[in-house]
Design a protein around this nucleic acid. Structure first.
Lengths: 98, 98
DNA sequence: TAAATAAGTTTACGATATAAACCAAATAAT
DNA sequence: ATTATTTGGTTTATATCGTAAACTTATTTA
């Protein structure tokens, strides 16, 4: 078909932002992601859980001193899915030569 | 903010496909769009109506011979919105140089 | 010790996408 | 000449999704 389907897990503003961010850093804390994306904590929590249970990111809940600290990282599958998503999107954004 | 908001009207697989198609042709009939996008008639009808009432496309219901014929065209606003959407998306897809 | 902040999670709700069901007219089959 | 099928859609119902509000627990700060 003309237009390939877009991975619904990535075709979401916030989830795409999260993955995009992680692609660029390989490790980020929850509050940092929250700040960079402008998301509310609740929404971010939900979307991170979705990305995590899809295997696109890993989530490590530990402590930094005495405070909880949630560390997120992209997985190889997440990286692959992102690349595929970008490729697919191009079919929508770039008109193929007549 | 790092990630600009994505026009929710365009951030939809089918609506984006429709607009993308119309950008490349300036005029298309309902059945053609249906075929190219692989959408069901119902879904397409709904999404075309949304694009239309947002002013992104025009919809002309006429006849071709005796059969009804629905013609869609992109509007300047639709074109502009699409361009803005593509620009905004790039913030998500391309990592800005460190 | 009381209030405020940090770091999240859970829950509730409204919006959204999608397909199923439906409708009307025209054409094809019997 | 009916009956069935196809064409070209629209309306409606549903299931999913995104989002913010409310809540929890622990920790500083006043």
């Amino acid at each position: 078909m003309m237009f390939p389907t877009l991975d619904p897990l990535l075709h979401s503003e916030l989830r795409l932002a999260v993955v995009s961010l992680l692609i660029g850093m390989e490790e980020a804390e929850f509050p940092y992601i929250k700040e960079q994306t402008g998301a509310t904590a609740g929404n971010l929590s939900v979307q991170i859980e979705k990305l995590s249970s899809a295997g696109y990111i890993t989530v490590d809940k530990g402590f930094k001193g005495k405070r909880p600290c949630t560390l997120c990282r992209i997985t190889p599958e997440g990286r692959k899915a992102f690349e595929d998503y970008v490729k697919a999107l191009k079919s929508y954004l770039v008109k193929p030569k007549k």
